[in-house]
């Protein structure tokens, strides 16, 4: 069972994304990469990064970084503290309500992202499919 966050978890998540027909459908016109930033908090000691290259419903590349030094540039960044990520993956937080309530922050071109809220929801649904250890 992969631990979140870890390289193994990212590999498993990427695999699940590519196997999930609902994500493939919702993201079928999406072109762009996204960086998830899991920020350190009282429950997790360091900030880590998950880079996803997403294209037409497929995850073409998924990387895990423990340092910000060599991060690829991504069109979007979705960031929040570890504890909120944990609640997101456990479906206790909705990914969009999470932004509206200040639990997560999203950076990037806003006009495009509003057309892909269904894809965002399916990305979270997919994360819940990973048998995750925290």
């Amino acid at each position: 069972m992969p631990k979140f966050p870890s390289r193994e978890w990212v590999e498993e998540y990427s695999k699940k994304l590519n196997e999930n027909p609902a994500y493939r459908d919702a993201g079928r016109t999406w072109e762009g990469d996204i960086l998830f930033v899991v920020e350190k908090d009282q429950a997790f000691p360091k900030t880590v990064y998950i880079y996803l290259d997403l294209y037409h419903g497929e995850c073409r590349r998924a990387e895990y970084y423990e340092s910000a030094e060599q991060l690829p540039k991504a069109a979007y960044t979705y960031r929040g503290p570890y504890t909120n990520w944990r609640r997101l993956i456990n479906r206790e937080i909705d990914p969009i309500q999470g932004i509206l309530t200040g639990k997560f922050k999203l950076e990037g071109p806003m006009m495009q992202i509003m057309r892909y809220t269904r894809a965002a929801k399916e990305m979270v649904n997919t994360a819940t499919m990973v048998n995750t250890e925290f």
């Binding site: 459908d25 809220t117 269904r118 929801k121």
Partner: peptide, 13 residues
């Protein structure tokens, strides 16, 4: 691509 789909009572492909 409309946000109305996202919060609909049932997921719609």
């Amino acid at each position: 691509e409309d946000t109305g789909v996202t919060m609909n009572a049932r997921d719609a492909s």
